[in-house]
Design a protein around this nucleic acid. Structure first.
Lengths: 160, 160
DNA sequence: AGCTGATTTGTTATATTATTACATATTTTT
DNA sequence: AAAAATATGTAATAATATAACAAATCAGCT
């Protein structure tokens, strides 16, 4: 991820190989259970997101997909939608980026603390919005801007 | 805005000419008070967003900017950032769209109920996330997906 | 009014993000 | 094995956004 500053960031969240393997296995299992197919492209995409250790852009996944040369965009975008539908990853709207879901509870509401300096993201349990600052403060995070977007259907459109 | 369905939407929120003129005047005043300049481009951009009566895309503003032919992208993107900084409009991250701020209290946290069917948006006072569904239900809105993104600085980056 | 520095705009080009459309291949079901 | 559903490959292009630099405009000063 690009950052908003010029100093070094030594507090990366890197996943051990063992941890990564476990996450990949869990994802496999989740798909089997849901009657969905965890194909090579999907697994590779998920692996790259896990390896990123934070929000990663679609085109960074595309670039890293093959050892030699990039993937075709649709390959990765398709995998990303699949993974998102499975609840394995979240899309961070304000960054145009994707991050591995950090909870065992897939299919939950997504809430993130996003550092504009180092580019890290922390997934938080979704409490109450006034409590966000409190939760954030507990981890030392200084909130500067909150975006909350609830999608759905308005009354008129449910009738129609 | 594009919509996710094929039926008609007769519940548009259109601003009367008088109401629009008032909002433009208020915006002028707000800028003067802040020591900023409400220039022609900025005013025109704001006007188009008001006229849209809901979330509008940057390129729709660009296309409508001049009676004959489109504006240059930077013209509009610059105006959009200015208006956003002034708290006159909000960016809806998940739609790549912009909407006029609906409260007198500029510089507040943005929260929206976004209908994926007719494309309308309602700005809501930001209560608590568990209460979002309640607020939404009160207006008959059926929430399907909530995104909450808090930007700021993580602990490590405040020190640096 | 004219000078000066800061701000805003114009212009061209290009970067970034994402989808369409259609052919092919693979997997699952019958 | 055939049919149907699902997933992938491929090329092209659409949609969104910014960089870089020149020119114009504005605010404050003399």
């Amino acid at each position: 991820m690009s950052t908003a500053c010029d100093h070094a960031h030594d507090h990366d969240h890197v996943l051990s190989d063992a941890a990564k393997a476990m996450r990949l296995d869990e994802a496999q299992a989740l798909c089997v259970e849901a009657g969905e197919r965890m194909t090579t492209s999907r697994l590779r995409t998920y692996e790259l997101i896990l390896e990123a250790g934070g929000p990663i852009k679609a085109y960074d996944v595309i670039d890293r997909f093959h050892p030699d040369g990039a993937a075709k965009p649709p390959t990765v975008y398709r995998a990303l939608s699949f993974l998102e539908q499975m609840g394995l990853i979240h899309r961070i709207e304000s960054l145009n980026a994707f991050v591995a879901c950090d909870t065992r509870d897939h299919a939950h509401t997504a809430a993130f603390l996003l550092c504009d300096c180092c580019g890290s993201s922390e997934e938080i349990a979704i409490p109450s919005v006034p409590e966000i600052e409190a939760t954030a403060a507990r981890t030392g995070f200084q909130v500067q801007h909150v975006t909350l977007e609830a999608h759905g259907l308005c009354q008129a459109c449910q009738a129609a």
